[in-house]
Design a protein around this nucleic acid. Structure first.
Lengths: 209, 209
DNA sequence: AATGATATCCGTGCTGGTGGGTATTTTTTA
DNA sequence: TAAAAAATACCCACCAGCACGGATATCATT
């Protein structure tokens, strides 16, 4: 069984390779520490399974998973991430990934996830399960930002003024203000600071990290 | 040689244990996923070396290192962290740690660090070295916020208005404004967003993480 | 004694963001 | 194809934040 591991922390990659190869299955594990590298390797020699981090510099694990799903729908995908924020988890699972394991889990759990997923099932850590259930019970929290709103949010965190954002997006400053209002409503925040905290906690902005 | 590993990601711990034990040295590796747990284990059976993450929930790896240094000055400490922000690195090394290895490094580098440190030397990843050199060349960047300014910054981060901050600290709103001005100058930022980004990058605020 | 950093206080006026609306067009979804 | 969501745009009133002026007191270091 061929597995491709993607994570920007080499040390984790090296450790994981050991772990996976020590599992009873004869696993052939290759590793990549960036999405670009991973994509190259995947095209040259498609694996059966991709295990990817989410917070990978630049492109990000979620975008990578989408790409994989689109071009190689048969390849299974498991996310291995430290993040357990509802919004992020939801976005990740919306790519159609077969698994989501938290980094704080024991390694046995990852091995189990691999086995389950390769057997055709899905596997999620307990915490992720809870989020899915929570989602059923409180669907009103579902409201996620639209694409445009995300763009505006990111430009806000580029320290641009509303006028500048308008110019950048070729829309009126008034429209930017409207977007801003809607963002505040959807995120239930009412100050720039609160918004920033929310955005960081939910990985909605691409600065930092 | 007894080694204590501290990190809140179990999977990383499991992988690292493999890596360290596969190194030629006969290493006896124990692991802890919280500072409290680590401290218990350390007291019961003191290791020669502690390898700790920095962003451990609640207490944090830096505080833990200080504690270890104070009560067991002979135990060597190596930080294994993803963070490479100058302020944070400086704070970490100020504890007197013998090493600082980035998680994005290859595992060979960690083994090398262990060997060097146990041999009585220090070991830092290249990126960390650069920060130390940079520090020598541009000491003017050292200017850190005063205690009062840090308090104000934290309250800003609590989403308080200047008026509320004034009440909280029993000072005039004007004074808060002055502090704010000085903070902006020192951090070379000129917007709330920029300031918050700076604060987060340099761990000046106690929210989040 | 002089210096620099810290901390405190005050007034004024401008501007950008906030919050209250309303409304049209396009796109997506059911 | 009808309904819903997203994106666009505008008006107006309000005020917090901030720039730009000032000012004084304390303390450690030089």
């Amino acid at each position: 069984m061929k597995i491709l591991l993607v994570d920007d922390h080499r040390i984790l990659l090296d450790g994981l390779r050991f772990l996976l190869q020590s599992g009873e299955e004869e696993a052939e594990v290759s590793t990549a520490s960036s999405v670009e590298e991973a994509w190259d390797m995947l095209r040259k020699d498609p694996p059966e399974l991709v295990i990817s981090d989410i917070s990978v510099p630049k492109v990000g694990g979620i975008a990578f998973a989408k790409q994989v799903r689109e071009h190689y729908p048969l390849i299974k995908v498991i996310f291995l991430s430290m993040h357990e924020q509802p919004h992020l988890v939801r976005e990740a699972l919306a790519t159609g990934a077969e698994g989501y394991v938290l980094k704080k889990s024991a390694h046995e759990e990852l091995l189990k996830a691999v086995k389950e997923v390769m057997g055709g099932a899905l596997y999620f850590s307990n915490e992720i399960h809870k989020i899915l259930v929570q989602r059923l019970r409180f669907p009103e929290d579902e409201k996620i930002l639209s694409q445009r709103e995300k763009e505006v949010l990111n430009l806000i965190f580029e320290e641009l003024s509303n006028r500048e954002i308008g110019e950048q997006l070729h829309i009126s400053e008034r429209t930017v203000e409207t977007h801003r209002k809607n963002i505040y409503q959807k995120t239930k925040t009412n100050s720039l600071v609160g918004l920033l905290k929310f955005a960081l906690e939910n990985n909605l902005v691409s600065g930092l990290n």
